[in-house]
């Protein structure tokens, strides 16, 4: 096995053109190897020292997250927490402090797991992945990137250098909520992210995506009739319960989960609806200006404050 340490992105792209696979935190690659899922590639190029990949930048209409940004950084980055809050909610729930300190968002999305926590938030926020080779650069939507559990449409020599997201409008909020059997070292059994924008008391945009209930992160369809309906109750900024229930039902109906050690398909279908409802509620409340700290899982719900 050879390991090349890249000092520039171009170094990394050259190595990848010659067949190397990138490694940053190694939390999937190394663990997968140890568990006997897949042997380590014969050639690796380390990209963890590329500072140009580890920045979050806000341009006028666009936020760019470098692929080397760690989960630990995402959960406290002011741009992410302030404008892409669902991503911070998700990053804060990933694994343990050790995992979060080395695991990167680029590795997360290129691993293509339908159980990844940051996936659903990025989908509802409309993120696109930036893929570069020595000679090209393209943007691809996450729906097009993820082709199945653990598979992506990127070519072997394409390096994900980051994600670009249109800067959300002012009356906007997002949230990610996950089912947890315990409060650390947990993997998503089901989860849901929501992104909500308002104009006054009307919803102008609503997107919901689901974690771990389909071969890839699944966006909930058929939410159009929720948009442009008056949805505020009083001045609390809460979407009416009937609408939340409808969204939850749509989520449950569209989920096609499996039964495994973690949960039955029946339970997953039910709970993903609960998660969707809660994510939309939290996102809407954030859009209305309510302070709900990151992550939502610790801020509200059963025993959350204790």
């Amino acid at each position: 096995m050879t390991l090349t340490i890249a000092h520039t992105v171009d170094d990394a792209l050259t190595a990848m053109a010659q067949g190397a696979r990138p490694i940053a935190g190694g939390t999937d690659l190394v663990v997968g190897h140890r568990q006997g899922k897949a042997p380590l590639p014969a050639q690796l190029v380390a990209i963890d020292r590329l500072t140009e990949l580890s920045r979050v930048e806000l341009a006028s209409d666009q936020i760019r997250i470098g692929s080397g940004v760690t989960h630990a950084d995402l959960m406290i980055d002011p741009i992410v927490v302030g404008r892409l809050t669902a991503v911070a909610d998700a990053a804060a729930l990933v694994g343990s402090p050790a995992t979060r300190n080395v695991g990167t968002i680029g590795g997360n999305i290129m691993n293509g797991s339908p159980a990844m926590d940051t996936g659903a938030p990025l989908v509802v926020l409309g993120a696109e992945a930036v893929l570069r080779t020595e000679t090209s650069e393209r943007r691809v939507s996450l729906a097009d990137l993820w082709t199945g559990p653990g598979t992506v449409s990127a070519q072997a020599d394409e390096l994900c250098t980051g994600l670009v997201i249109s800067t959300p409008t002012t009356q906007h909020g997002s949230a990610y909520v996950r089912l947890e059997y315990r409060r650390a070292m947990e993997i998503a059994i089901v989860g849901a992210a929501a992104s909500v924008s308002f104009d006054g008391d009307r919803i102008t945009s609503l997107r919901v995506a689901l974690t771990a209930v389909a071969p890839t992160i699944r966006e909930v369809k058929g939410l159009d009739d929720v948009v442009d309906q008056p949805s505020f109750v009083g001045t609390g900024g809460v979407i009416v319960p009937e609408v939340l229930s409808r969204i939850g039902s749509l989520a449950s109906q569209q989920a096609t989960p499996i039964s495994d050690l973690r949960a039955s398909d029946r339970y997953r279908s039910h709970v993903v609806g609960v998660m969707a409802r809660r994510a939309v509620d939290a996102a809407a409340r954030r859009a209305a200006g309510e302070e709900i700290s990151v992550p939502v899982n610790r801020a509200i719900g059963i025993g959350a404050q204790r």
């Binding site: 315990r182 409060r183 650390a184 070292m185 947990e186 993997i187 973690r262």
Partner: peptide, 13 residues
């Protein structure tokens, strides 16, 4: 330890 879920320090009451 992924699928056999011990309690963590974060769960301690």
């Amino acid at each position: 330890l992924l699928e056999y879920k011990l309690q963590t320090i974060a769960d301690v009451p």
